[in-house]
Design a protein around this nucleic acid. Sequence first.
DNA 1: CGCCCCTTTGATATTAATCAAGAACTGTGG
DNA 2: CCACAGTTCTTGATTAATATCAAAGGGGCG
Lengths: 192, 192
Amino acid sequence: SDCTVIVSGLACRYKFVRESRRQILSLHFAGDIPDLDGLALPKADQGVCALTPVTVASISHAHLRGLAAAHPTFAEALTRQAMVDGSILGEWIANVGRRFAVERVAHLICESFTRMRALGLADADSFDLPMTQADMGDATGLSNVHVNRTMTALKKSGVLAVTRRSHRILDWARLRDHADFNPAYLHLLPAA
Amino acid sequence: SDCTVIVSGLACRYKFVRESRRQILSLHFAGDIPDLDGLALPKADQGVCALTPVTVASISHAHLRGLAAAHPTFAEALTRQAMVDGSILGEWIANVGRRFAVERVAHLICESFTRMRALGLADADSFDLPMTQADMGDATGLSNVHVNRTMTALKKSGVLAVTRRSHRILDWARLRDHADFNPAYLHLLPAA
DNA sequence: CGCCCCTTTGATATTAATCAAGAACTGTGG
DNA sequence: CCACAGTTCTTGATTAATATCAAAGGGGCG
């Protein structure tokens, strides 16, 4: 009966298929509330876990509901966030359903970079994506091995350089093109 | 600035990847509001279309907001529905990302049957799923050809009989098992 | 009847998974 | 500082899953 707010670090929601295959459903950065749906749905059907060490805060559902009742703007922000989450989930379905491996991985990188940049967590051209390649596989529906080969290909093609999970974007236009990435679905507010 | 309520027929949300590959994101039956997110998000980034002839009703956002303000129970139902939608999207990501073709197709059938049954649109053991196999492919991230082979396999294995898009469930337990289907994510209210 | 759309089937090509092993890195304790 | 143990990354060889291409049947409908 509490919601979790990510304060720092990287978390994700996931589901298991047949107790063995993990699929990551969404990534959550500072400010996100991965289990917001717990407010309206009694029993959770998806897991939340940390991909890096994470610091979190808790807000009771009661408290959250109180805030929403007292401040309509807050309630609106909450539902808006829920809708954005849904929009991102939709893009992920398209990503795993209809994109090739290179496109999927590139898309994951584009999305992470764009979101982190919007949060001030990324530099103009480089950022830390602190997940393992196995995690990236679980996010894109690929095997860890294939993620590795795909990353190698992206590096060779010169759009990206990676050292110790720090990613440097060498050619954003081409990376975006590899990924078929259009940030509209993130519904970021026009550059503040 | 209107929301659409499905009154009858089958609709879906979808996205295109590179203008050529379609991915269906969700199915919508009578009572659903496929574009509810338009309430909080100004520009839609996903399409809605009919898979069968559909009758719809329109409600203006203003009206909807008025109803929500006047009747907290209604507002709650709305957000609850949005959360359930999100939960279903999550299961679809897992379906497309981590399941084999048979599992995906079987899962689509299990979900459709369960949802239609909950709405009184399906018989105890048979129902109409009025989408083409190409549509099923777009919903599961498979080619129409492979959907066909998979359906053939399901029919041969004796869990299902299909005539003219009318599906008869011959062995629900086994079908559910083929699909790795657990209806928890649908958050249906305990049998009324 | 004829046409169009959908389904079915076969042959082949492509994509990505799996298996296996070795290299590089991370952090740990001596 | 170094040896080490445990991950993670990388690479190769092989297999499995699914796409694509092509063409032939069916069914409904004007």
